[in-house]
C-alpha cells in the first residue's frame, strides 16, 4: 500500500506542471509588494501558501488567477481554473442552481443538481443565495469551483471567519472534493492544521524591503 502510494506521488511529480509561476516583481505605485518568486504545481498536487498578514498572498493569487495583469514576470496557466474567495461571492439575484449553470455553460441540469447534492445543498436548487446560511453559501461557492472540473483550483483563506464546527465540515468537504476531482490546488491559510491535512507541500512567503519572496527551502 505504502509502495503504491509512493509510486503515485512519484508519478504526480513527473507529471507536467499545471501552472508555472515566474514573477520578477509586483508593485502598487512605488511600493514593491512581490519580489522574484518562482514555483510550479503539478497535476493533482495541493500546495498551501502561508505567510504573515499583508505579505502579499492575496496579491499573488490574483496575479496567478489572471485578475491582476499589472506585474513583471510570466505565468503559464491551464485552460480551466476555479477560484474560491474569502467571501462566497455568489450571484445573489440568481437561484442556487443558476449560480452553477450560468457560470459553467457546459454543465447539464442533472450534473448541477448532482454537484449540489455533493455539498449538501440538495433541495435548495430554487432558493436565492440570500436564503442560505453563510456556511451553505460557502458550500455553494465550493460547488461552483469544482463544477467546472478545474485543472487549477485557487482558494484564498476559504475557511476563515467560520466557527470551528462549520470550518471543520468545510475542510472535510474540501478534502473529499479534492480527492475526487484531483485538481492542482493552491490555497492560502493561516492554520497549520489546514495546511497539514490538505497540502502535499507548503510555500512560505517572507516580506523583504524589495518585495516578498519564498523562503528558499520551499521554492
Amino acid at each position: 500500500m505504502v509502495f503504491v502510494a509512493a509510486l503515485g506521488k512519484a508519478r504526480d511529480a513527473l507529471a507536467k506542471s499545471v501552472i508555472t509561476v515566474s514573477i520578477d516583481s509586483k508593485r502598487f505605485g512605488a511600493s514593491p509588494v512581490l519580489g522574484a518568486l518562482a514555483f510550479s504545481i503539478a497535476a493533482g498536487e495541493t500546495v498551501a501558501l502561508v505567510g504573515p498578514s499583508g505579505v502579499g498572498k492575496t496579491t499573488l493569487l490574483r496575479i496567478i488567477a489572471g485578475i491582476d495583469s499589472d506585474f513583471e514576470g510570466q505565468i503559464v496557466r491551464p485552460q480551466t481554473m476555479a477560484i474560491v474567495f474569502q467571501e462566497p461571492t455568489l450571484l445573489p439575484w440568481r437561484s442556487v442552481l443558476a449560480n452553477l449553470t450560468l457560470i459553467h455553460k457546459g454543465l447539464t441540469h442533472s450534473e448541477a443538481v448532482h454537484m449540489l447534492d455533493d455539498v449538501g445543498l440538495s433541495g435548495k436548487e430554487q432558493l436565492f443565495p440570500g436564503q442560505l446560511s453563510l456556511g451553505q453559501q460557502r458550500r455553494l461557492s465550493l460547488a461552483r469551483a469544482f463544477a467546472g472540473r478545474p485543472e487549477l483550483l485557487i482558494m484564498d483563506e476559504p475557511f476563515v471567519s467560520l466557527d470551528r464546527e462549520t470550518a471543520e465540515t468545510m475542510l472535510t468537504l474540501t478534502e473529499n472534493l479534492i480527492a475526487r476531482h484531483r485538481p492542482a490546488t493552491l490555497f492560502v491559510t493561516h492554520s497549520s492544521d489546514e495546511a497539514n491535512r490538505l497540502a502535499n507541500r507548503t510555500l512560505v512567503m517572507k516580506p523583504l524591503p524589495t518585495g516578498a519572496v519564498l523562503t528558499p527551502s520551499d521554492a
Binding site: E87, T89, W93, I103
Partner: peptide
Amino acid sequence: TNLDALAQVYRLGWRTRLQHIILPQLA
C-alpha cells in the same frame, strides 16, 4: 469588483457578464 474577478477567472462571455452580473447590479 469581486464579481468582476469571478467573471474573469471563469472566463464568462460579455453577454453573460452583462445579463447576469452587471445589469442585475444596475437594476
